[in-house]
Each structure stands twice: as structure tokens, then as C-alpha cells.
Design a protein around this nucleic acid. Structure first.
Lengths: 349, 349
DNA sequence: CTGAAAGCGCTTACAG
DNA sequence: CTGAAAGCGCTTACAG
């Protein structure tokens, strides 16, 4: 790295309210009121002050405001490191949507990645320890103990994409249960009676809920839950593992995520099953895997926009009134019909 | 949204330096020095103060410190909206790596998405207008006029993944030119003489540089640049378009990115060309497209870790000493050999 | 409609 | 080693 001292440091003088006040021979209070659209300034004066501020490139000193109001006007987004290690994490797009949304509400978003060792040692986020944030959105499940520790903090907290049983912390979650119920119903309506589920049903609460919604649809239609049709796709730590097709094949599968559906379809094709002619497949997430697959996969879009919008509104409201609680809010997904599902005509393969 | 007022607001009293000072009957100055590891406090007293602070859950009031030191201890990361609209944007992993890295340097990262209309209307980022950041990393090329406007601001600026010709702003960029040169060389060493390039060479500077590195390797080896072998893969706005294989086929292709290589391989297979037996393919980015392709694609990994590390160090140094300039820093990629490249044996297809 | 006064919680330069 | 004093730039409650 070669360092050159060619450029002069830019000499843009920071202007403050005092300077503007002096220009118009008024008090700082008046300038403050004018710039913040508060009562107590004449319309004409207010306009002149605003215009001059613009002209001089005045920028509010947020630190001074923060010191007084005890608000940072920042909201933290905490994501465990393990969720951002894959380049395809859908938490990325969620967090960028949140950040965008928060901006429209007058907040900035500070993203912090929680390292595994800090999670284990129950170290609170830096952004909290330095009082840089007025509220915290936790994106993705964390260790139980860590969450307990988090719940002792004195700023509003909002969980996103997970919830904690027996806790009354506020959560925004995808309505996995109902979405899965609906999409399984769709298969049943198309005439499918032997339907499998691919996913480790004891791995995460979201997979479990998807399984239970699937099961509910079976129950309601008096269809059997065949244990051979429940195929695990990952180990206890969530790492995807290889799996085999059942020997007695169903005519349709509900896969717990697109990536697993993608793999499943590959296996089906290798086993000379035609998708969707012989076997239909549906899955969740509307991720890239659902569109690069052949055929493209019918999937549930998680409705990120709505999740983000709701989450942003709630955290802001909670900051303004810390007494508010919302409990668990479920956001229903949207089914996106593609080419991996088909009406079941015959009775057997 | 149902609101319930069940929970009492948490009553954790915020403790400040004054309170700690009173406990030990010392001055606030002493507490400040102790907690910040500054000279002027006895070792024993320092330890006692630190311990008590920990015990009481003392958190520094960053706003107060900021007001005094004129530093926010935040660094902004600005990304144009168009770069985060695709779920697979590799700017996501870059930004989360930056955020992680900044944390180890004592900074928080504020991410802001620059909306197209703000870019057009030359609206500076909120985080800048509110003095929330000490420096700004711009991730991905922005409109020329916007960059000009940005360069008038009074905080350190660092461009990442692009540079501006005729500007002496500091940039961290992938060494597209040399990486491309190297990988083309690799093909030539394997005996390939007719090599094509897939990419719109007037679309972005990075594609252009990749093309020029490719061309340099041809020149050095006295190989012809066949115009029919240069295939555009996107329109002027960067949107991927369909393309056709040349009638007279090369034995190898350098594709400007994995996604295009993925498409190319699909087309080759459809045209009954075997990859890599008949046609070799290399590309750039080491993205998901390089591993989901069959065969998996030999690609250049952009060495994000090193880019991020360098970028973080530089912006922090520039904040501490605004006079420092670094110019353009090139980070070389790492070639990842996979299955899409093969020694060329015969002379013709 | 306007402003004087107080104060938010630190840090820094200086004196002892 | 210790601390009194000043001050960073705002906002707020209050008085006029």
C-alpha cells in the first residue's frame, strides 16, 4: 500500500445552528424549531432559516440530538454468523429490505453479525453495549440462553423468522403451518393421495411447522401418514445430507425448502420418474433453486415485503411506546404455481 | 395487530460515569480515564472501577462521546438499490463481511440502500446528512454525477468493486485484468488456440477489463482475436439477454461471469457439444452458478476476504488521518480449477 | 411568536 | 496520580 499525500484534506466547515442563528440574529432555539417543524416560529422566518440551512449544507449533529433525547435513531439487526456463511442466505435480502424500510421511517439500520463464540459466551452485541441502537431486530433463531440474556436488555426487541415457545417476546414469523396446509391441500385437490414430506422434522421449528401443516391437510382428507414417506434431508445441525427415495413411491412430495426440492427432483429424474407427469413436487422459499430447477418448482413465496414492512412498523412503534407488545405475528406466504405440479390422473405409477 | 399491555416496561436504570464516580468518591474524569485505559489512574483504582462498571452493566453513552470527539464510530456502506434487487447479489456477502470486520476495529456498519430516484436527484445518503458515519464505503458503481457529488463530502470515501477513470478517489477493485489474463493463459497452456469471450465488453469496466486481460493473453501467444468469438451476453443496462453460439466454434470460452458460463454450457450441451471434452469453459465470481452447473465450472474466486480486509483497514486509517490516499488497489482473484476445463488434444472438433 | 437557561454524559487540556 | 472547568450542539420546559 503506497501512501501519497497529494490531496489536501477537504476543508468543508461544518455549520451548526448557532451560525445560522447569528445570520438572522435570532436564537438557536428558533433555528431548532424552524428546522424541526415545531411550533413557535413565524412561517416566513422558518422558510428563510430552512433555505439558508440548505444553502450552507447544514447537517444536524445527531450526537447532540441523541444526547438530549436519549435516542440514537438507529435500529440494530442482529444475525448469527452461521446464517450468513452461505452466499445464498435469504436473510441478506431481508436485511437489506429492512434497512431500506427503516430509512423511510427516519431510522438507520446497523447490521451486526453475532459470532458463535460471542453467542456461547453470552456477549451482548457491540451496538447495544455502546448504546448505538434504540431497538433490536433479531433475524433468525439464536441459542436459548443467548435469547434469555437478550431479553434482559432495556430496548425493544423483535424476533424475526422464529419464535420462542413459552416466551412472550414479539415475533414476526412466516406462517409455515398454514402455508404448508394450503399447498398440501392443493396437491390433494389435484387428486394426489400418497404424498411424502422431505425434511428433518425435528431440526427447526419452521420445518416442524411445515410438516404439521402438511399433516393437518392429510388428516382433514382422511389420508394416511406413511412413515416411509417422511424423508430427512439434513442432520441435527441443519447441514444438508444425502437421502434416498422411498421404495414404494408417493405421487407427490412436499419438500421443506427449494434446495431440497431441487435435489429431490434431480434424484427423481435419475430414478427415471418424470416430474410432474409421474411425481409432483412443491416446496418453500421461492429461492433461486426453484427457478433453476427443471421443471421449475411450485413454491411458497415467503412474502418478505410484508414481513419487513410489519417488522419495521412494530419496532418503531415499540421504540415510541415500550409498553406495546404484539406477541407472535404470522405472515402468510403466497403460492407460486410453476411446472412441478400436475393433476394426478392414473391410480398407480 | 392486537396490542396488549401485559408486560411492564423493563426498568433497568441506565448507569453513567457520574454514578460510578460517586461510589468510589472520585471524579468523573478518573472514571473516564479508567474505563478508557488512559494514563492517570492508579492500577488498583482502575481495576476496581472497571469491575464495578461491569457489575452495574455500565454502557458508554456513545452520543456524549461522539459529541465531544466528533466521531460517530460508525462507517457507512452505500449500495445502489439495483444491486440488491436480485437475491443472489454478491454484494450481500461482501457487506456482511465488511460489517463483521469493522466490528473488530471498533466500528459499527450502517448499511444504506441508495434508491434510484435519490441517485438521479443527487440526494446524499441519510446517514451522511445526519452525521451518523465517519466514513463511507461505496459498494458498486454509481452514476457519474452522483459520484462527483459524493466526492464533495468531508468524510473519507472508499469505492469498492469499481473505480472511476480520471478520479483520484481511493478504490479497492478486483484485479479483473490480470485474473483474466492468467485464466486465459491456463487455457492456452492446455493447448487451446481458438478461444472465445462471452460478455458485453462495453457494459461495465469489470467486463471490459476481463476482456482486455483475455486479449493480452492472446496477443502474447500470437493467437488471433476472432470477432465472431466475442459474444455479447447483456444489453447496455446490464440485463442478461439471449445469445447464440458462433457457427465456427472455438474450443474454449472465457465467460465474463458464472451465470453467463452456466447459460453457455447449457447451450453447448443443447448443441451437442461435450463440456469439457470438446469445449472448455472458464468464468469469474465463484458464485452458486459455478457449482450447480454440470460440469462444475473452473472459475476465479474474487477473494472477498482480502478485499474486505483491505477495505476495512484503509477506511479506518483514512478516518484517523484524512490526508492519506491510496489510489487504486487491485486484489487478485484465485483460480479454482473444476471440471469445465480440459487439455485440448485434437486439432478440430 | 421568541429566547434565556439548563442540561444531556462524556472528553480534553490544564493545573496541582 | 487526581480533578475542576469548559464545552461539544443540540432540545425542552418555561417565561415573556
Amino acid at each position: 500500500m503506497s501512501k501519497k499525500d497529494i490531496r489536501e484534506p477537504k476543508k468543508r466547515i461544518e455549520v451548526n445552528m448557532k451560525q445560522i442563528a447569528e445570520i438572522f440574529d435570532v436564537s438557536i432555539v428558533t433555528v431548532s424549531k424552524a428546522l424541526n417543524d415545531k411550533d413557535g416560529v413565524g412561517d416566513e422566518l422558518r422558510e428563510k432559516i430552512k433555505q439558508k440551512a440548505e444553502e450552507l449544507g447544514y447537517r444536524v449533529n445527531i450526537a447532540a440530538r441523541s444526547l438530549k433525547t436519549r435516542k440514537s435513531y438507529n435500529i440494530g439487526i442482529l444475525i448469527a454468523n452461521r446464517y450468513v456463511e452461505s452466499q445464498e442466505s435469504y436473510y441478506f435480502s431481508i436485511s437489506s429490505e429492512i434497512v431500506k424500510r427503516l430509512n423511510t421511517e427516519g431510522y438507520s439500520g446497523i447490521i451486526e453479525i453475532l459470532l458463535s463464540e460471542d453467542e456461547e459466551r453470552l456477549i451482548l452485541p457491540n451496538m447495544y453495549n455502546e448504546q448505538k441502537v434504540d431497538g433490536l431486530i433479531v433475524l433468525g433463531q439464536l441459542e436459548e440462553d443467548y435469547l434469555k440474556k437478550l431479553e434482559t436488555i432495556d430496548i425493544p426487541l423483535l424476533y424475526m423468522d422464529f419464535y420462542v415457545s413459552f416466551s412472550n417476546a414479539d415475533s414476526i414469523v412466516i406462517d409455515n403451518f398454514f402455508s404448508s396446509y394450503e399447498v398440501t391441500h392443493l396437491l390433494i385437490e389435484k387428486g394426489h393421495e400418497r404424498i411424502g414430506f422431505v425434511g428433518n422434522i425435528s431440526s427447526t421449528s419452521s420445518i416442524q411447522d411445515r410438516f404439521l401443516g402438511f399433516y393437518k391437510a392429510l388428516l382433514e382428507n382422511h389420508l394416511p401418514l406413511n412413515n416411509d414417506y417422511i424423508i430427512s434431508d439434513r442432520d441435527g445441525l441443519g447441514k444438508l445430507i444425502d437421502f434416498n427415495l422411498p421404495s414404494n413411491m408417493p405421487t407427490a412430495f412436499v419438500a421443506n425448502c427449494d434446495q431440497t426440492a431441487y435435489k429431490l427432483i434431480k434424484k427423481l429424474k435419475e430414478g427415471n420418474y418424470k416430474v410432474p407427469e409421474e411425481v409432483s413436487v412443491v416446496s418453500f422459499d421461492n429461492s433461486i433453486f426453484s427457478t433453476i430447477s427443471e421443471p421449475q418448482i411450485t413454491t411458497i413465496d415467503n412474502n418478505i415485503k410484508q414481513m419487513v414492512e410489519t417488522a419495521s412498523k412494530i419496532i418503531v412503534k415499540k421504540i415510541k411506546n415500550p409498553k406495546l407488545t404484539y406477541g407472535r405475528i404470522f405472515i402468510k406466504g403466497k403460492t407460486i404455481i410453476r411446472d412441478s405440479t400436475k393433476i394426478r390422473l392414473g391410480n398407480n405409477l
